[in-house]
Amino acid sequence: MSRRKEDLGSVMALAFSEILRRMSVEEKKIFAQTVDLTELEELKIADVAADEKRRVGDPKFYVGTTPGGGLSLELPVDKVVECIETLPAFLSSTQIKLLILGNGEWIEFFCSESDFPDILRKHTQSIIEAGVMIDFDASNLVSGGGGCISLDLKKPSPEVTREIAGKFLEICGFKHRFRKDEFSAVVWKDILEVTE
């Protein structure tokens, strides 16, 4: 019933704006004298306020599930290596392949889980400034630097995805236990906003 009312309201608004469009200048003058335009002005202001609430810019932290199964991340640069270091434990990969961007070319490294932190720390600057690609068996991480990371989990278990997101959040100084399969968390002005 209320849906029909909404539909009718929208038809009335469209019809009314069409009538206004067809009015002559003289008719519009008479119309303007007979109605109180304050309410209409207030509605316009409310629209502008809604526009101002749009989130524009780059947050301090972001994690969100992606359509194909994985995580999209924006991490503080000083936490990037610490976060990536934890991934082998979640992804239980036997061999790790790293491609680190140096002077515009990809330099390859193969290592075990135990050597992984050393390689990351040795190349921290390139990883956070230029870029890195890491293969953990089927899963893959890519970053163009600046803490902007995409983690493509080939056989994504929702539990593991939630755990990785929670761990990264914790490393960056926030705490939340994700419960659903699709979620996002963003930090604006040191305030964590979670959507699940």
């Binding site: 989130r55 524009v56 810019g57 780059d58 992606t66 999209s72 996002s184 963003v186 959507t195």
Partner: peptide
């Protein structure tokens, strides 16, 4: 992925 986020990256 950046088009799927709940904010507009710069």
């Amino acid at each position: 992925e950046h088009t799927q986020k709940g904010y507009e990256p710069s």
